[in-house]
Design a protein around this nucleic acid. Structure first.
Length: 488
RNA sequence: GCCUCUGUAGCUUAGUCGGAAAAGCAUCGCUUUCAUGAGGCGAGGAUCGGGGGUUCAAAUCCCCCUGGAGGCACCA
């Protein structure tokens, strides 16, 4: 009944390390970890990649402000991201940094490959340059024709630069998007991208003069230039799996690139065009998810400290947060991380429904030294859950799983096992234990440490979905313990 | 300005091909005693943003108005 085991390659956006991780960053990584674990649960050979993006003007500036070298700054901040993911039980196969040696090498090699294809040429970049910012700015940044930061009219500046022939891939991109409905998800984003491509594609400036920006990957065609951050950052999805070696051959194409809506254009248009040029298959799905607000407020830097995932995890538990993010927020849309709502879900669902279910079950088992196998009276039909997960409908899948928690509570009420003795009691309790065991397997991707805890309370080995139907012959369960403390 | 999405119960949302308006939370009532002051059952609560049109039939399709969110690349 299980899918044939396959490979599964999932990536997240790599975070720009000019700020510290907040709950918005955490959201994406938690979802990615859930998807990754779900596929591991299925028995797939999974590669999960995340990491940090560490070059560019903003970082160079930030480092200067803090009196650090760029390298010092990115080392410090990157480690914070890595640490927080570990704390949230997010387990990537690799945490890539765009300052990693192998990434730099791969980025340069891929650039050369695209150059040899004839898709990189030297041209002239003309743009609005603000001397105060020491950077090009766009027209929409202007307020009354002036740079809002320096209140100056920018000058039009021209410089020689290298370009990628993005425009050349317009038709091929449109064709690919139209022929592969799952390529850009969700649909609204897909429409948005299609319309914008139709408006026309300009070639992409992919270098910066070293004289104005040193903090970047040296451009392999000309030592006076560094590579534009976006261009090389995207390539991390290849360097992360050691392109073009064996690991790459095993995992590419990526099954899903997960990213926020601010990154859609780069992943849905520029990245596939780069891959087309390099004769590499595009990813199967680029999934563009919504943004999170925190207590209805836009997540901003000033709010940053109060929404540190570390503090939230201390207060609400890691699994509480993971559960909430998966259950509350509709993945494709914007959502709100509200502490009020988080508290309600932890108390009502994790503590009262799930925690108490385990607790009452184990308590009812106390009279029985062992519980032997008998027919399971709660029916599990999990095809729809698998289907939902396959289509990245995380929230909906978790809702379906939760129905079994409620079914089991209902079953106990109906059977009133506290009135039963011996064999009768044993039969009912076997169903409850089996039900809890299966629930713990289904929930493992979402709240792994809770699932593992449940297994240890049931005194059994934690299994994956392949073991879903392997009923335990004899249960000898332990004492009940509190799974979730209530939040006051 | 151009484009995309969206407005359904107090809140968060589901609603496929047009066919009797759904679910959870919150509120209120009933009920169980195994359990973490937990569990179960039930009730009230919606002019489906507004107006017009197509249709035997519209939350759903079309038009207009209006509120909200987002995208418009070389900033990451």
């Amino acid at each position: 009944m299980w899918n044939i085991m396959g490979k599964f390659y999932i990536t997240t956006a790599i975070d720009y390390v000019n700020s510290i991780p907040h709950v918005g960053h955490a959201y994406q990584k938690v979802i990615a970890d859930i998807i990754s674990r779900w596929h591991k649960n299925l028995g797939d050979d999974v590669f999960f990649l995340t990491g940090t993006d560490e070059h560019g003007q903003k970082l160079a500036d930030a480092a200067k402000d803090q009196g650090l070298t760029p390298k010092e700054l990115v080392d410090e901040n990157s480690s914070k991201f890595k640490h927080v993911w570990n704390l949230l039980n997010i387990k990537p196969n690799r945490f890539i940094r765009t300052t990693d040696k192998d990434h730099i090498k791969t980025a340069q090699e891929l650039t050369m490959k695209i150059y040899k294809k004839g898709d990189i040429y030297k041209g002239t970049y003309k743009g609005l340059y603000c001397k105060g910012c020491e950077a090009y700015i766009t027209e929409k940044d202007l307020v009354d024709g002036k740079c809002p930061h320096h209140n100056k009219v920018p000058e039009i500046l021209e410089e020689e630069s290298y370009f990628f022939r993005l425009g050349k891939y317009k038709d091929r991109l449109l064709k690919h998007i139209k022929e592969n409905e799952e390529f850009i998800q969700p649909k609204a984003r897909r429409n948005e991208i299609i319309n914008r491509i139709k408006e026309g594609l300009n070639d992409l400036n992919i270098t910066r003069l070293k004289s104005s920006l040193e903090w970047g990957i040296p451009f392999p065609l000309n030592e006076n230039y560094v590579t534009y951050v976006w261009w090389e950052a995207l390539i991390n999805y290849l360097s992360g799996i050691e392109y073009p070696k064996e690991t790459f051959k095993r995992y590419w194409p990526a099954d899903i690139h997960l990213l926020g809506k601010d990154n859609g254009w780069f992943h849905a248009v520029i990245w596939p065009a780069m891959l087309f040029s390099a004769d590499i298959k595009p990813p199967k799905t680029v999934y563009i998810h919504g943004f999170l607000t925190f207590n209805k407020q836009k997540i901003s830097k000033s709010l940053g400290n109060s929404i540190s995932p570390v503090k939230l995890a201390e207060k609400y538990s890691v699994d509480g947060i993971r559960y909430f993010l998966a259950r509350e927020v509709m993945f494709y849309d914007d959502g709100d991380f509200s502490e009020e709502s988080l508290k309600n879900r932890i108390n009502n669902e994790l503590a009262n429904e799930l925690g108490n279910l385990v607790s009452r079950t184990l308590s009812l088992c106390k009279k029985l030294p062992e519980i032997k196998k008998s027919p399971v009276e709660i029916k599990f039909e999990i095809k729809n859950i698998e289907e939902l997960m396959k289509n990245y409908k995380i929230t909906e899948a978790l809702n379906e799983i939760w129905k079994y928690v409620q079914d089991t509570n209902r079953y106990i009420n109906q059977k009133e096992p506290w009135k039963l003795q011996d064999g009768e009691l044993e039969k009912v309790m076997y169903t409850c234990l089996e039900s809890i065991r299966r629930i713990s397997i289904l929930l493992w991707p979402f709240i792994p440490s809770t699932s593992e805890k449940i297994s240890s309370l049931l005194n059994i080995e934690m299994q994956d979905l392949k073991g879903f139907n392997n009923e335990i012959k004899i249960y000898k369960v332990g004492e009940p313990e509190i799974l979730f403390e209530k939040i006051i």
